[in-house]
Amino acid sequence: MIQLNSLSKKYEEAIVLNVDKLSIDKGEHFGLVGNNGAGKTTLFSLILDLIQASSGNVTINSIEVAKSEAWKKDVAAFVDDNFLIDYLTPEEYFEFIANLRKVDSAALNEFLQQFDAFFNGEILDQKKYLRDFSKGNQKKVGLAASFIGDPSIVILDEPFANLDPSSQIRLKSFLASEGNKDKTLLISSHDLNHVTDVCERIVLLEKGNVIKDTPKSPKTLKELEAYFSGQ
């Protein structure tokens, strides 16, 4: 479904990403881990055609992302604050995304109901603009919005960061339930527990290179902990 072919990204002389071949299948839950500067965000930005590859290419459903815009209807993403429109209320923001994805307002309301617990009564009907919400609540809005219209691929960069513990657990169970719908999920996280809970395939990046690519097994968490503690 998503194919990376001899993909690399260089800034001046520094190589920040270098992936020879990587393919992500339909319905896969793909977890990306690595320390700061390992190239996680770079990888997602290349898949979303937000930055230009130095060599190689990315295809989504056989469409090369840098050449055509046709892939956009299948993909939703929440990477950082630049995905929020800060002068809208959460309702207006959801409506904006829903309109873009051809979801009518009745369907949108129904969709939002499943987030009642996740939103914890702090998101809807607050009569506040997004810029006046806390970081954590802004994140909840962005995460929920990326599932509007049931896109077949969802890319989330650090979805658990900035969320309180209850919300992290609720998000995890939501992501697990979405997994049953044949949705392809790409998630990066610093939290090894969460990422091994949600994903069935773990890719470890170090200085732009894939150094581990394994299906999740009961041992995965232990191995990752060993790697990150430097053993």
Binding site: L48, D49, L50, E69, K72, K73, V75, A76, A77, V79, D80, D81, N82, F83, L84, I85, D86, I97, L100, R101
Partner: peptide
């Protein structure tokens, strides 16, 4: 500019 990435990944034609 503050939400340009959103517009660039959503299904809007330029």
């Amino acid at each position: 500019s503050s939400y340009y990435k959103l517009l660039m990944t959503q299904n809007i034609s330029y």
